[in-house]
Write a protein that binds this DNA or RNA. Sequence first.
DNA 1: CTGTTAGCGCTTTCAA
DNA 2: TTGAAAGCGCTAACAG
Lengths: 331, 331
Amino acid sequence: MKKSAPTIRDVAAAATVSTATVSKYINGAQRFSPKVEAAIEAAITNLGYKSNPLAKSMITGRTNTIGLSVLDITNPHFSSILKGANRVANDQGYSVLLVDTEETPSRERRTLEDLSLRVDGMIVFSRMRESEMAWMADIDKPLVFFGSLNELPLPTVASDDHGGAFMLTRHLVMLGHKRIAYLGFSKSRRDEERLGGIREAMKAAGLELTVVDADAPSMAEGERLCSSIVLGAQRPDALICYNDLMALGFMKEAANLGVAIPRDMSVVGFDNIPYGKYVSPALPTVDLQSERMGATAMEKLLAVIRGDTVEKLTKIAPQLILRASTQARPA
Amino acid sequence: MKKSAPTIRDVAAAATVSTATVSKYINGAQRFSPKVEAAIEAAITNLGYKSNPLAKSMITGRTNTIGLSVLDITNPHFSSILKGANRVANDQGYSVLLVDTEETPSRERRTLEDLSLRVDGMIVFSRMRESEMAWMADIDKPLVFFGSLNELPLPTVASDDHGGAFMLTRHLVMLGHKRIAYLGFSKSRRDEERLGGIREAMKAAGLELTVVDADAPSMAEGERLCSSIVLGAQRPDALICYNDLMALGFMKEAANLGVAIPRDMSVVGFDNIPYGKYVSPALPTVDLQSERMGATAMEKLLAVIRGDTVEKLTKIAPQLILRASTQARPA
DNA sequence: CTGTTAGCGCTTTCAA
DNA sequence: TTGAAAGCGCTAACAG
């Protein structure tokens, strides 16, 4: 029979010291005489002792784990956020416990409340409206939220969606586009920010905006809505998509329908997912700096955990990426 | 000042029962008289009591957490695996603790050994050679490995890479291709399986294979190696890429270089990532069923944890996806 | 420098 | 059907 894992008591006995001494030594909280340290070290290796993190966590209340909640981990925007957050976490000795909420938004609250008991802090990306999120501020753990908040006193990391949308639209206007349409996704909290930026630029140019609303922020959805947009009575000469995924789906179907991009129509998106650069024509986009956002959010959260004071809102400037899917129109 | 979270003792006191009773009631381990149950229920809601999962874990030794280690979470193949694994885990009351090893393969052992102390089991995708993995079998937690193993007595979930590669190559041969090349990635343990399948089909057709080796399984790498392949002395008439990412990068650069796909050359890949369907021409591929693999691995692991006996190797049949990036050659 | 002594919040015999 | 009591493995005062 295999004996159960050695405990700190076994080590203490083998080294003929107290458990307190072993504990302090292991945690580097204190130095001891060379003789004692050597004895402890020997006992540890002989026994193959490993400190039980659960017992430690119960006492210290710290788990060295951070919860990260995203909407859909297969969306490259979120994979990148996770990548960035995970890297920073690992560098500082933390692990990431992932939550993918997309499929069950109804259980989001329960899921996050439960999660909060198992982690030292959490980073949340949610589709909930701010008015329904009050409970988040009551969670007894540090929390960083992705996106802007008006009321809730939570630290946030947000991209400037309004600004990004404005410059993207302005660029299209300057290229001479007149009939610009927005393929949006109103279920998202960022949709209205982008719409605001677009409208502002359109208004400044004295143009009317056509808006189409999608049911999902996916390639399949962009593909599905394509025909109604390009084969409608007044085809737009430029389309701004809520994100790159929708734009990619749209472009594929447009090609099937015989609509050439950018000759017949310009198409642009948001996020700067890696694949936008590898389709033909390459997709212009607003780089929201996904990975950086993830890293920044994690840095901010760890700072809060450390007890540092942090600014409430960290805004990350987006960058316009110009590529071949846009083309100037005759004035 | 905010009082600290209520414990089971507070509940017991409020309901004037013992902590043992509360514990059993909460865990549904036993029924009690209606009066007692009502009192406990009331105390719990009044106090807003939440069971501390850490304390529970320390005693029971179960954390309801599964560790999942992948090579690069931004690779859609792994995102999908995670998606599938996470769904199954959540359905059965487990959470997923993610490890992304790509950047520090050197610390993989330490990372996983540490991880093993915090989870009930783990699922591992690794680039290590089997001969260097003996320690994995010694980890004192259930573990499911992705890929085939010869020696180690670990349960595994694997795709039939050899078979997939064989049928893919056979298809190209039947289309009349003569000069077939493989853009491989020898650092991967699956590379040789794929190479084996390709060689077998080539041999059966009496053809010679050209092999080029990449440094990374990425779009950028496919892009980088493109010119040396298409502008070399003997341009292949078909290219099999280690994965879809490399194929996508290659196709983009081929277009830049004036090489038309599939007219001048057919290109195929592995994985069936979603983006392959949305480039032009669409990328034929071997669908390795990433999401299904993740789900299957998690099911298998949870079965092991439950104590069920499971078969050592679960093989998942790949499916050939034909699309526009291949074209028949004149015989 | 080192050890003693209390627990952390919970589960789990075992007894009533 | 209920409770008393003994810890799980570790840390954290406090003493010496």
